[in-house]
Design a protein around this nucleic acid. Structure first.
Length: 234
DNA sequence: CCGAAGATTGCCT
DNA sequence: GGCAATCTTCGGG
């Protein structure tokens, strides 16, 4: 009896795979499979969209301002998951590249569920009411939710055979001809750098959004005066 | 200590 | 297409 419910054909990626610059690793991750085995069952996702983030030289990277408690995993050894929490409700997952000390990583932006569809759908049911199969892991936060990835997976080793969260080689090779590239999504700095990679004409690729600054939560402070006394600006 | 923005998503008009 | 939800993290005072 196998310890983990893993298909025979699946092959774990090697740590050397991640010991390269993230911009080289990113396109090679397309077609690879992220598998997460839990008590509830196994969900596997084939990656169709990723983004490369360089280390401290990349203004869009979390590592740009150096090592902090949050991004510490990015500065560690390759082949580990860097999971962060954002917008007060979402998780996103990266895979760390290059040797320890070099903080580069690949953000996993979208995938297609290839195993454990019912469990993935159940995990996502709280969000969208009637998600299509193709939308279950479409977008970085959706991908995490479908796979059941949260903060507890920050630092997880995805090339360790005994790990519940693993990165596996492609079921079928993805050739360079089938890969498109363009600007990264939702970042304000270095928005012109084309380090986003996706499988061409893949329906499970997240929509491109060119970063929208958030509106101020509070329009103006309370002054103690009642409104309509002539002090308001048009 | 406090303010502000964030590698997003889903619902509303 | 606009905007609220929700909270952590970081940097400035």
């Amino acid at each position: 009896m196998r310890q983990l419910d893993q298909p025979e054909s699946s092959q774990l990626l090697h740590r050397e795979f991640f010991e390269r610059p993230s911009v080289a690793v990113a396109p090679d991750l397309l077609g690879c499979v992220i598998s997460h085995s839990t008590e509830a069952g196994l969900v596997a996702v084939m990656l169709v969209e990723v983004e490369a983030y360089a280390g401290e030289a990349d203004p869009a990277s979390h590592a740009f301002r150096g090592r902090t408690a949050r991004n510490a995993v990015m500065f560690g050894p390759p082949g580990h998951a860097y999971v962060y929490f954002t917008y007060g409700m979402h998780f996103c997952v990266n895979l760390v590249c290059q040797p320890a000390g070099r903080a580069s990583a690949v953000l996993l932006r979208a995938g297609r569920v290839t195993e454990g569809m019912p469990l993935a759908r159940a995990r996502r049911s709280g969000a969208a009411r009637h998600p299509r199969d193709v939308d279950l892991a479409r977008g970085p936060a959706r991908l995490c939710e479908a796979l059941g990835i949260d903060r507890s997976h920050d630092g997880a080793d995805v090339v360790d055979p005994s790990s519940r969260l693993r990165a596996l080689a492609p079921l079928a090779p993805v050739t360079a001809a089938g890969i498109s590239r363009g600007p990264r999504v939702g970042i304000s700095r270095a928005a012109d750098v084309p380090w986003r990679f996706w499988i061409t004409e893949e329906p499970a690729v997240s929509p491109y959004r060119p970063h929208t600054p958030r509106k101020r939560a509070v329009a103006e402070p309370v002054t103690g005066r009642a409104p309509g006394d002539g002090t308001m600006h048009p």
